[in-house]
């Protein structure tokens, strides 16, 4: 296993995937580094990548006129960043920005998606791994919406 592959292949999201499937990811994986305030992706643009956070923190934002960028949540070390590549029309739903010096592994989403056409079992295995990520974000957002620490006066 190459040094780079060792960084990501043991992550739970890849756990138990067939070696030839892992190989597809391996062929497209590359390290990207960002400085604080660097934009990693932008709402509306094509979602052609997804990431694993190796170091640093990424903040998910929505830009609102008059309010500027509103920070919704952070994605930290060891977490998956980006699920828009799995859902048509494959465009980013939010902005993502590094808050500190940040190192990510980027995977080429287009290549992975293409592989699903010939290997639906890959697609199914990947969906089973990414859906919990999406559900967890959804649940977290709902909980955030509750404003649980507020005291109604």
């Amino acid at each position: 296993m190459t040094g780079l592959k060792a960084d990501w292949a043991s992550h739970p999201i890849f756990e138990g995937l067939a070696p030839d499937c892992i190989e597809i990811f391996a062929r497209t994986a590359k390290v990207e580094e960002f400085e604080p305030r660097d934009l990693i992706f932008h709402e509306g643009e094509e979602a052609d990548r997804f990431y694993l956070v190796l170091e640093g923190t990424v903040v998910i934002q929505i830009f609102v006129n008059e309010r500027g960028p509103v920070n919704i949540e952070t994605v930290g070390c060891g977490e998956v960043l980006g699920w828009s590549w799995l859902v048509e029309p494959y465009r980013w739903h939010f902005d993502a920005q590094a808050t500190v010096p940040t190192k990510l592994i980027a995977f080429n989403a287009r290549r992975v998606r293409e592989s699903f056409e010939s290997r639906p079992d890959f697609g199914f295995a990947l969906m089973k791994r990414f859906l919990p990520v999406i559900v967890q974000r959804l649940q977290a957002t709902r909980l955030q919406l509750l404003d649980v620490y507020d005291v109604p006066s």
Binding site: T57, T74, C77, G78, T99, Q144
Partner: peptide
């Protein structure tokens, strides 16, 4: 982590339960 960030906050944003998985 905090549910709502303010300008200048460099830490985590999001609910505390999200921290459990990692």
């Amino acid at each position: 982590t905090v549910d709502r960030a303010v300008a200048g906050w460099r830490g985590r944003i999001g609910v505390v339960t999200s921290l459990i998985s990692r």
